[in-house]
C-alpha cells in the first residue's frame, strides 16, 4: 500500500501560531498550505483540496464559523478548530456548525498531533468498522457485545454499551453531549445532560482503573466526551 501524503490547510492570522502549526505539520510528513484569512482560504481552495483543515475561529475578515458552513457545502473532510475562545458555547457552536474537533489555545504539541492523527485516521476508516477494539487491558467485541477487562467479563447495561459504541465510532474525536443524547435517548432529550453524565459515571467505574483520572473515557469540559486511543 502506498502511503499518500495528506494535505492540510492552516487558516490562522497570527504568524507565530501559523508557522508553529506548519512546522508541526511538516514534521508529521503532511503537505501544508497556509491562509491568513477566510478570503485567502477560499482562494486557495480553488486549486487545493485539503484532507484536513486547521481553523482559527477569530479571523480578521470573517467569523471562522462562516468558513465551516461554506466548506461543508463541498467537502466532508475534517475540520479541527483551534481557538482562544474559552466560552464553551463557542466551541459547541463551532462543532454544531460542522467542525469535527477543537483545541483551545494554548495547546500542547502532543495533543495537536493526537488530534490531527485521530481526524485523518478516522476519516480513512470511517466505513471500515472494526469488530474488535482494544483499549489497554480492555477488549470489546462489538458483534458479540462482549467486553472484558484483564480477561474478566464486564457487564454493561444496553445504554452504557450504546454510549461506548458511539464514542468508539468517533474515537479520538470529541462527541458533544447533545449528539450523544440524541443518539442514545432520542431527540426529545438533548438537554437532559444529567442522564448522560450519570451513565458515563457508571461506564467509567466499570472500565477505568481510576474513574477520577480516566485514561480512555475523557471528559471535555462543557462540551462532551472523547474516547482516547
Amino acid at each position: 500500500m502506498i502511503q499518500t501524503v495528506h494535505k492540510v490547510m492552516i487558516i490562522e492570522d497570527d504568524v507565530g501560531i501559523s508557522s508553529l502549526l506548519a512546522s508541526q505539520g511538516i514534521s508529521m510528513n503532511l503537505d501544508v498550505n497556509c491562509a491568513n484569512c477566510v478570503k485567502d482560504a477560499m482562494d486557495h481552495l480553488k486549486n487545493y483540496e485539503p484532507d484536513l483543515v486547521l481553523l482559527d475561529l477569530g479571523l480578521p475578515d470573517a467569523d471562522g464559523k462562516t468558513f465551516i458552513k461554506t466548506f461543508r457545502l463541498k467537502s466532508d473532510n475534517p475540520i479541527l478548530v483551534i481557538s482562544s475562545r474559552t466560552q464553551e458555547s463557542e466551541k459547541v457552536d463551532a462543532l454544531n456548525a460542522g467542525a469535527d474537533d477543537y483545541l483551545t489555545k494554548p495547546f500542547g504539541l502532543n495533543e495537536l498531533k493526537a488530534r490531527i492523527n485521530a481526524l485523518l485516521r478516522r476519516h480513512q476508516t470511517i466505513n471500515n468498522a472494526a469488530n474488535l477494539m482494544k483499549l489497554g487491558d480492555i477488549e470489546v467485541d462489538w458483534a458479540r457485545r462482549i467486553i472484558t477487562k484483564k480477561g474478566d467479563p464486564v457487564n454493561l447495561s444496553p445504554i452504557e454499551f450504546e454510549i461506548l459504541n458511539i464514542l468508539a465510532t468517533s474515537r479520538g474525536k470529541v462527541v458533544t453531549h447533545r449528539n450523544l443524547l440524541a443518539k442514545v435517548w432520542g431527540g426529545a432529550h438533548t438537554d437532559d445532560h444529567h442522564y448522560l453524565r450519570i451513565y458515563m459515571g457508571h461506564l467509567r467505574k466499570k472500565l477505568e482503573h481510576d474513574p477520577t483520572q480516566p485514561q480512555y473515557l475523557l471528559t471535555v469540559a462543557g462540551v462532551g466526551y472523547r474516547l482516547e486511543v
Binding site: 507565530g16 495547546f107 504539541l109
Partner: peptide, 9 residues
C-alpha cells in the same frame, strides 16, 4: 492567549 500559545508551542 495567542502569544502564550506560540511561546509554549
Amino acid at each position: 492567549r495567542t502569544p502564550l500559545t506560540t511561546m509554549l508551542g
